[in-house]
C-alpha cells in the first residue's frame, strides 16, 4: 500500500514538474498563497539585493552539484565549485545560494578570502517544492556569474 502511494505521488510530481518547467522559463506562473516566514523574500528581490541590478551571466566556471531528484526536500545537498584563481587581487569574493520558489529565496551568503585557496562551498538546504537552485558567484573585480539547476522534490521540506 505504501509503495503504491509512493509511486502515485512520484507520478504526480513528475507530471507536475513537466508542466511547471516551461512556465518557469516563461515567468508567467503566479506564486501560490502560502504562510510567509519572517524573512520572506522573492527570488528576483534577493538577486537584485545581491547584484544591485548588475547583469548576471551563466558561466561554465561555476559548477553546481545538486541531486536531480530529492526524495526529501528537508535535506538537499548543494555543492558549489568555482574554477577561478584565488590570488591576492583576483579571487572569488562571494558565493550566494538561492532558490527560485522558497518563501525566503536566500539560503546562504558566503564571503570568501584568498586564504580559502579555492572557491568551494557545500551545505544542505530545504526545498519546499520542485524548483531551481541557483549559485550566484561574485568575483573580486565586481562581476557576477551564476549557475542554476532544477531539483525535483517529492516531499517538501519547509513545513
Amino acid at each position: 500500500m505504501k509503495r503504491r502511494n509512493f509511486l502515485k505521488n512520484l507520478c504526480a510530481v513528475s507530471a507536475l514538474a513537466t508542466v511547471a518547467t516551461p512556465s518557469i522559463v516563461m515567468g508567467k506562473d503566479e506564486p501560490k498563497q502560502k504562510p510567509k516566514g519572517v524573512n520572506a523574500m522573492s527570488y528576483d528581490a534577493a538577486l537584485n539585493a545581491i547584484t544591485g541590478g548588475k547583469p548576471v551571466a551563466d558561466s561554465p566556471k561555476v559548477s553546481l552539484t545538486v541531486p536531480e531528484i530529492a526524495e526529501n526536500g528537508a535535506v538537499v545537498p548543494v555543492k558549489v565549485n568555482v574554477d577561478h584563481p584565488m590570488e591576492e587581487n583576483n579571487y572569488v569574493k562571494a558565493i550566494h545560494i538561492l532558490t527560485t520558489k522558497n518563501g525566503n529565496a536566500r539560503a546562504a551568503d558566503v564571503m570568501l578570502t584568498p586564504m580559502n585557496g579555492k572557491g568551494y562551498f557545500a551545505t544542505r538546504i530545504k526545498l519546499g517544492s520542485t524548483q531551481d537552485v541557483v549559485a550566484v558567484v561574485e568575483l573580486s573585480d565586481g562581476t557576477f556569474i551564476k549557475a542554476s539547476k532544477p531539483v525535483k522534490v517529492t516531499i517538501g521540506g519547509c513545513g
Binding site: 535535506v75 558566503v110 551545505t123 538546504i125
Partner: peptide
C-alpha cells in the same frame, strides 16, 4: 577567512 550569512532555508 570566511564569513557567512545564513537563513532558515538551510537544513
Amino acid at each position: 577567512f570566511t564569513t557567512m550569512k545564513v537563513w532558515e532555508t538551510v537544513s
